[in-house]
Amino acid sequence: MKLPIFIADAFTARAFCGNPAAVCLLENELENDTYQNIAKEMNLSETAFVRKLSPTDNFTQSSCFGLRWFTPASEVPLFFCFLAQTAIGDTLVQDIQYSPDTRKLLVRLSDSYKRSFLETLKVNTENLPHIENTGKVKGLILTLKGEPGGQTQAFDFYSRYFAPWWDVAEDPVTGSAHTILSSYWSQQLGKKQMRAFQCSRRGGELNIALRPDGRVDVKGAATVVLEGTLMV
């Protein structure tokens, strides 16, 4: 079986720039394992499979196709891609993962970005509760791999957290989000102990340790800013 496949660099007018993705054209559905094996072989952030809905369709003319989207690890529901795009526009995305237990959507930005980009990124959260109103998603995590050098060398990864479904536009520092982040980045970095920084306006540093039983210890410093007497 021969399948036409392309690699396209998105969000750029020049070759070898932007975000590379594979696009495979299909006449018919494939076995599920075949989709994932092709995505693993391409080893790009995204591999899209575009399938004709009718034998008379033409890839160069018709605008109605079946579409499935895979990372090297798993299939990405298209709705989650749309939700992420609503929040961050054309920002380059490296990976999208969903935690059904916590109902949190993790969006990893491209490794080409630096911490300053995540800190200043304008995120549109106002429309998210209207777009996703089924209860499936209750929190949006944006995360970025730590930079290899400079003053940010001490941190393994960065994040920001948004929960407009709970009337929280952006949370300053979120312990619950780091239970998801710690599992994800532990697999990505091959580490059980990590330091993280949440890039909200207030900012926060967290020390993370994964136990053998799967539990996560999240620790950080605390500072007393108010002392008084409550009269009741």
Rank of each mutant, 00 (worst) to 15 (best):
N127S: 15
A8S: 09
L3P: 04
Y98V: 02
F157W: 13
S116P: 00
P77K: 06
L189G: 03
K145S: 10
P55K: 08
T223W: 14
S112Q: 13
S54N: 12
C81R: 06
T86V: 05
C24Y: 00
G175W: 09
K138L: 09
K104E: 11
G214K: 04
T229M: 06
G150Y: 09
E119N: 06
R51C: 08
S74C: 08
F117L: 03
A163V: 04
S54V: 00
Q188N: 12
F6T: 10
I38P: 02
Y161W: 15
I141N: 00
G175L: 12
A39L: 03
D95L: 07
D111L: 01
T86M: 14
T71K: 06
D9Q: 05
K114S: 11
E27P: 03
L181C: 04
A73K: 10
N37A: 14
L142E: 00
G214W: 13
A15G: 00
T60A: 13
I141P: 00
K114V: 08
R68A: 07
G89D: 02
G66H: 07
K191M: 10
T91A: 11
T179Y: 01
G135K: 05
G150D: 09
T91D: 07
Q97L: 11
F11E: 12
L67S: 06
V107S: 01
I208R: 03
Q198T: 06
K136Y: 07
T134L: 05
N19K: 08
V173H: 07
S110E: 01
M42F: 15
T223H: 14
G228Y: 14
K40Q: 15
I5R: 01
A209T: 00
A48R: 03
E227F: 02
T34A: 12
I131L: 14
V173Y: 09
Q188W: 07
N127V: 01
L230N: 11
Y35K: 00
P55H: 09
E147I: 07
F16H: 10
W166F: 14
L210R: 10
L121V: 14
E205Q: 14
W165R: 03
T47D: 04
R160E: 07
D167W: 13
M42A: 08
I141W: 02
F155R: 02
P4L: 10
E119M: 12
I88K: 05
G204Q: 05
K145T: 12
A209Q: 12
L25P: 09
L181N: 04
G228E: 06
C81F: 03
N133M: 05
D9N: 15
E41Q: 08
E31A: 14
L210H: 07
R14D: 03
F79N: 09
H130R: 09
Y98K: 10
W166V: 05
R215P: 01
S159Q: 08
L92Q: 15
D57S: 14
V173G: 05
A154P: 02
L30F: 13
L83T: 04
V50I: 14
G214R: 06
R160M: 06
G220A: 09
R195V: 12
G190M: 04
L83K: 01
L78M: 08
T102F: 14
E46I: 00
L26T: 06
W165D: 03
A48N: 06
I7Y: 11
